[in-house]
Nucleic acid binder design. Sequence first.
DNA 1: TCTGAAAAATTACACTTGTAATCTTTAAGA
DNA 2: TCTTAAAGATTACAAGTGTAATTTTTCAGA
Lengths: 139, 139
Amino acid sequence: MSNPNPTVPQISDAEWTVMRVFWDRGDSSTGDVIDALQSRTDWNPKTVQTLIRRLHKKGALEVAAKNGREFVYRPTVAENDCEHAASQSFLGRVFDGKLTPFLANFVENEAVSKEEIDELRRLLDRAAADHQEPEEQAS
Amino acid sequence: MSNPNPTVPQISDAEWTVMRVFWDRGDSSTGDVIDALQSRTDWNPKTVQTLIRRLHKKGALEVAAKNGREFVYRPTVAENDCEHAASQSFLGRVFDGKLTPFLANFVENEAVSKEEIDELRRLLDRAAADHQEPEEQAS
DNA sequence: TCTGAAAAATTACACTTGTAATCTTTAAGA
DNA sequence: TCTTAAAGATTACAAGTGTAATTTTTCAGA
C-alpha cells in the first residue's frame, strides 16, 4: 500500500490513458507523451497537450523540470492509489460498495475462465495466509 | 445470465439510483419513484422526473402503461446486465479489462477483510466446480 | 538582433450530467 | 362545462469531458 487514504483527483477516461504513460515512463515531457501515444491512439497532439494541462491543473501532475521551453511533468499520485480510488468509486456506485456481489455477477455472467478462477483463488489463498500471520515490522 | 451480450445504454451515477428503484419495485410511476427516493435522497421531484425522462429517452425505461395522466415505466434492461456492462467498462478503463489485477490491487490495499476473503473463496470454489461439470440442459 | 518554429496558453464547441425552474397540457371535481 | 392542480414537456445553466484550433510566447539559430 503506497499511502493510506490518499486523496486522488478525479481522472477521466482519456486522462487515464495519459496518466498511464507517466506511470510507465516516469517523468516525461509533453512531447514524450505525444510520441508514446502516437502508436496507441489516434489523438491529435493538441489533444494530448490539453489533457496534460488539465491533469496538471487538477494536481495529478506536477512540473518536475523545465527543459528549454518544454515542461517535464511527473505524477503526484501513485497508480495503485488511483486504481484503488477508482475501484472504490465504481463498487460504491454499482455494487453498494461490496466486492462479493461484483465478483458473483461476473461469475454468473460466465465472464471468468477456468484459468482466471484458479489465478484468483491463488491470489486469495495468499491473502488469507497473510491475514493468518500478520505482516512483520521492518524496524 | 439474463441475456448474452445485451446492449445496455450508458447509465449515469444519478440514473443508477433511479434504475435501482425500478429494479426493486418493478413497474412504477414517476410518483412512485419520487416517493421511494424521498427517504434516500434529497432530490427535488423535478430532478427525479428529469432523470426518468432521460432514462426513457435512452431506452433504459419503456412505458408500461398510462394511468390517467401518469405514465408507468418499466426497465428494458436487466439489473444483472447493466451491472456486468458497467463492470466491463470499469475494468477496461482502469485494469486493462483484467479481473486479476483488480482484485490484486484491492488485496494489496488491505481493503478486504478475512471474512470477505473466505466468502470470495467459496464463490470461486463453486465457480470452479461448475466449470468442472458443465451446466446441464433443461430440455 | 531578428525571425521563425515549436511549445504553451487561451479559446472553442458540442455532449453529458447534476440539478432544477418554468411552461403547457390534461384529467377530475365543483 | 369550467377551473385548477398535478403530470408532463420544455428550457436552463454550470461543470466536466472529448477533441481540438487559434493565439501568444519564447528559445535557438541565421
